[in-house]
Write a protein that binds this DNA or RNA. Structure first.
Length: 303
DNA sequence: TTCCGGATAT
DNA sequence: ATATCAGGAA
């Protein structure tokens, strides 16, 4: 609490300029907030909004998702990217039903133990769904705190323990105020203190920003190593999964062979999808999304 | 550390 | 063309 003014100023700005995002509306359940946080992992807000609404219309609580198949979760995920999130989110729903009676847990320790829930997401749910006081540090908050407080040109690619400490010291004592401040920090990084073209003239803390005071206006280079896509296994995985997603039930491997000419890379990509729990063999010559149809009874293997 | 999607803005 | 985007897991 070395700089309570910082959180106060940003929170006040947030209350006047916050984007009207659906998961911020009153009455949104912890489950809906958890779904939003998982979808928002490495995915821009504008792409998440429609997917979030459709997902919750179909599975309004963890039990509903847990009762459906991984295949349907993968289909509903659509083209959000990183489809393993869809499988993990369903596994998360199963764990919530099994361990917590179908209610999203409110303890950090229990949240962290859920599939697909890491340091950021656990703290985000604890703060935004349950109003607890935790530093919630995503890429936006890292950048904001690094710039405005430390005066450094930019943050690193991952959240370090020091980032949590630095952010925690900015939070108000009152839990509700701390949760509000966390949302405000994220919003500031997303809308004003952006990675490439920060809008410092519109920033509510311009006058107390260490980064501005040091005269560093130009953003630094990439904070994350460049991720190529064209020609990588990831592109091939996406193509394969696209065919399976748009089909019903098993797909003959001949159809999958058409998405990529390199046999070795295509086979490696398909094996990866199987390894990751997204795809499974169906009979001798076909593959399908996991759980997309009746599974073969193990007893039949004796015939 | 590396891998894991895919749309969008610059 | 490429950096970015409310990260997580092996």
């Amino acid at each position: 609490m070395t700089q309570p003014d910082f959180a106060t100023v940003v929170s006040r700005w947030f209350q006047q300029h916050a984007r009207d995002l659906p998961w911020r509306e009153p009455g949104v359940t912890p489950w809906a907030i958890l779904v939003s946080e998982v979808m928002l992992q490495q995915t821009p807000v504008v792409r998440v909004v429609p997917a979030w609404q459709a997902w919750l219309a179909r599975w309004p609580d963890p039990a509903a998702l847990a009762a459906d198949t991984p295949a349907e979760a993968i289909r509903m995920w659509g083209r959000l990217g990183y489809p393993r999130r869809a499988v993990r989110l369903r596994e998360c729903a199963v764990a919530i039903v099994d361990r917590h009676g179908g209610q999203v847990p409110d303890r950090l320790e229990h949240l962290l133990a859920l599939p697909g829930v890491g340091t950021y997401t656990a703290r985000a749910v604890a703060a935004f769904a349950y109003g607890q006081r935790h530093p919630v540090v995503d890429t936006n908050v890292r950048r904001v705190v690094c710039r405005a407080v430390a005066g450094e040109p930019d943050a690193g690619p991952v959240t370090r323990p020091a980032d949590l400490v630095a952010t925690e010291e900015l939070l108000p004592t009152e839990p509700a105020a701390a949760a509000l401040a966390s949302a405000a920090f994220m919003e500031l990084g997303a809308v004003i203190c952006t990675a490439r073209s920060p809008r410092c003239t519109a920033c509510p803390v311009e006058s107390i920003c260490a980064w501005r005071a040091s005269g560093q206006e130009a953003p630094a280079g990439p904070t994350r190593r460049p991720q190529r896509y064209a020609g990588t296994d990831r592109q091939v995985r996406g193509l394969l999964l696209g065919v399976l997603r748009d089909s019903t039930g098993p797909v003959p491997h001949q159809r999958l062979d058409q998405v990529w000419t390199d046999d070795v890379q295509r086979a490696r990509a398909l094996a990866g999808l199987v390894q990751d729990g997204l795809v499974e063999p169906a009979g001798a010559d076909s593959f399908r999304l996991v759980g997309d149809g009746p599974s073969l009874p193990t007893a039949d293997l004796t015939t």
